[in-house]
């Protein structure tokens, strides 16, 4: 347990009558690349959003570096439904906001790219360095934090260099081609100096060659920054080539997990992706 980076305990997320994620538990160890896969609408992004604090799960807990960051349990009528006869049903509620979770060292990217539209590429990354600038309003206004500011700028430049966007640093973020926008999102996440990186469909909309490059790139940054990576992906090539372990979700439920080879051969997974035989 000591090297567990992220742990989800029985996460359930219910939107009205729809159960998007149902009793989902995973463990991600340090320095691993773990993927969550599943058909469209399987609840992958919902699980991500619960982990990063965008909304609290209906029930369940999330631990980050063995620290409880999200914990929620239903009350009243819902409680009877969830707890059943369990008298030890936990009650504690913890719900850190996304900014606090990022401060702990978990950075993410978004499925539908969310860049700061009116800013340049460089400014986008610079904003993310804000996290590590410890200065009050006064010193920021009167530029007493000059050294910190210089360091932040340098750090942002380094990150741009890592993702190979240094040449376009003064262009408007939204004017970049799609693949570069994805890279910029990763650069921005890296600029918060995370211990863990959550990538939400990083290869969406990329062609096979770009996907192969991305796989190479993810492995590279993982080594360089000693990251733990959790990713959601549709592209099987990418997932199979870089993941250490894979969790498969279908209709919110965990249907299989294991190494890429194990998952590939699992009949349940094949059924979920290709549909079951009628007979």
């Amino acid at each position: 347990m000591a090297d567990s980076m992220l742990k989800l305990n029985n996460i359930t997320m219910q939107f009205g009558g729809v159960i998007a994620v149902d009793d989902f538990s995973i463990v991600v160890k340090q320095n691993e690349i773990v993927a969550i896969i599943g058909p469209n609408g399987a609840g992958k992004t919902t699980a991500f959003n619960c982990v990063t604090g965008i909304y609290p799960p209906t029930s369940g807990q999330v631990f980050f570096e063995n620290r409880l960051i999200v914990s929620n349990y239903p009350n009243k009528k819902m409680k009877a439904l969830y707890a059943g006869g369990n008298k030890n049903f936990p009650k504690e509620k913890v719900c850190l906001t996304p900014d606090k979770i990022t401060r702990l060292g978990m950075a993410r990217t978004f499925q539908n790219i969310r860049l700061f539209k009116s800013q340049t590429v460089f400014e986008n990354v610079l904003i993310a360095t804000h996290l590590h600038q410890k200065c009050n309003l006064f010193s920021a206004v009167f530029r007493l934090n000059h050294q910190q500011e210089q360091a932040a700028r340098k750090h942002a430049m380094d990150m741009l260099e890592v993702v190979g966007l240094l040449e376009v640093k003064d262009e408007l973020a939204t004017s970049l081609p799609y693949g570069q926008q994805r890279r910029l999102e990763i650069a921005r996440a890296l600029a918060t100096k995370p211990k863990m990186l959550l990538l939400d469909e990083p290869a969406a909309g990329m062609n096979p060659q770009e996907t192969a490059e991305l796989a190479q790139f993810i492995r590279q940054i993982k080594e360089r920054f000693r990251l733990t990576v959790l990713l959601i992906e549709h592209h099987m090539d990418l997932v199979m080539s870089i993941s250490d372990r894979i969790y498969v979700l279908d209709f919110g439920r965990l249907i299989a997990h294991g190494t890429p080879e194990q998952v590939q051969d699992d009949p349940k997974v094949i059924a979920a992706y290709l549909g079951e035989d009628e007979e």
Partner: peptide, 10 residues
């Protein structure tokens, strides 16, 4: 520009 992304940047 983007509240959700801003929050995710800490």
């Amino acid at each position: 520009d983007d509240e959700v992304a801003a929050e995710a940047m800490g």
